[in-house]
């Protein structure tokens, strides 16, 4: 396998859970709801996906279970924030806290058992193509699903009437309600979609990425997904770019550590110097680059108020109670 292709394949696997979870959260936020419970929902998806796969032997059933559990679990958040109009930030944090604990309790019997990994696609003739074969035709099914998801969400939000309705709910729930749009019902559906996506992202971790269950195995990926949504200024294709950029930075850092500079003298001087410089930087600083980059991008996209206004759901995080 060509090394660049190999690295890109690794990047794809690392980016997919971020992409799926962030795309789900994007729809939630576009409807005007901020759910900080992504990490907790992902953990619930990861543990239920692993458990069902282990019990039935079918990874697809595990994925299905994770999607359902994620959606049902998010209903708890929906009921509190939408029906009982509780504070969304606090409720989302509680959802994460509860998810960490519950998934740990549920997962006890499954610790220390290797899971069943979902098999990757194989198309004779195509998967073996040089450079791009493995990348385009040899990934795991959830990779393709994630791409379909982005296309679908992008089309739904900006190409359909229902998507327009959802966005109008997020932009101004007052006028949407006045127009007779069922604000609360749409938000419930959006929250459940976000939960299903987070569950799916969790299942990707426990069934594809590292087929095993361990407590807290998301290791903060839910929070990264949340950051990506804002990073992308609530645009699906920018979420895609952000997730892959983040994955690329992480994987590149590991690869640069492993690379032996003395074998790379044929590289152009500037590239060589850059690699040497990166290798000399303490790894803690390299590890903090993605977080700093997110802050920088946040600043860059938010300083242009007109652009932000155009994309930001104006009702984000604000409670809505219909007055009749």
């Amino acid at each position: 396998m060509d090394i660049a292709e190999a690295i890109l394949t690794t990047v794809a696997t690392a980016s997919t859970p971020l992409l799926i979870a962030a795309t789900g959260e994007l729809v939630v936020e576009r409807s005007g709801v901020l759910n900080l419970g992504v990490e907790g929902m992902m953990l619930m998806g990861a543990v239920s996906g692993f458990a069902v796969t282990a019990l039935t032997g079918y990874p697809w059933l595990g994925v299905l279970a994770a999607v359902i559990v994620g959606a049902v679990y998010s209903l708890l958040f929906g009921f509190l924030t939408l029906t009982l109009v509780t504070n969304q930030v606090a409720t989302g944090l509680a959802l994460t806290l509860l998810g960490v604990g519950l998934s740990g309790l549920i997962g006890v019997p499954f610790v220390g058992h290797p899971g069943i990994q979902m098999t990757s696609l194989y198309i004779p003739g195509l998967t073996g193509l040089p450079y791009v074969g493995k990348l385009l035709f040899g990934e795991d099914p959830l990779f393709y699903l994630s791409i379909v998801l982005v296309i679908g969400v992008s089309w739904f939000l900006f190409g359909t009437r229902a998507g327009l309705t959802l966005r109008s709910v997020g932009d101004n729930h007052g006028s949407a309600h006045a127009l007779g749009i069922p604000v609360i019902r749409i938000r419930y559906l959006a929250v459940m979609f976000g939960g299903a996506c987070a569950g799916l992202a969790g299942a990707q971790l426990s069934i594809v990425y590292t087929p095993q269950w361990v407590e807290n195995m998301t290791a903060g990926r839910g929070w990264i997904a949340l950051a990506l949504v804002v990073f992308a200024s609530w645009r699906p294709w920018r979420v895609f770019a952000g997730a892959y950029l983040f994955g690329l930075l992480t994987i590149a850092e590991l690869n640069i550590q492993a690379v032996d500079l003395s074998t790379l003298h044929q590289l152009p001087g500037a590239v060589y110097d850059l690699l040497a410089l990166i290798k000399a930087i303490p790894s803690q600083f390299l590890s903090s680059i993605p977080y700093l980059a997110t802050v920088v991008v946040l600043v860059v996209i938010s300083r242009n108020r007109r652009l932000t206004m155009m994309n930001t759901p104006a009702s984000l995080g604000r409670a809505f109670v219909p007055d009749r």
Binding site: L84, T86, N87, A90, T91, A94, L97, L98, G101, V108
Partner: peptide, 20 residues
């Protein structure tokens, strides 16, 4: 298990928010 503590804290917060 120590996980019950975080389950409790999560539920307590849910109930407080809901009751408010």
């Amino acid at each position: 298990s120590d996980k019950t503590a975080s389950v409790f804290q999560g539920m307590l917060l849910f109930f407080v928010l809901a009751s408010d």
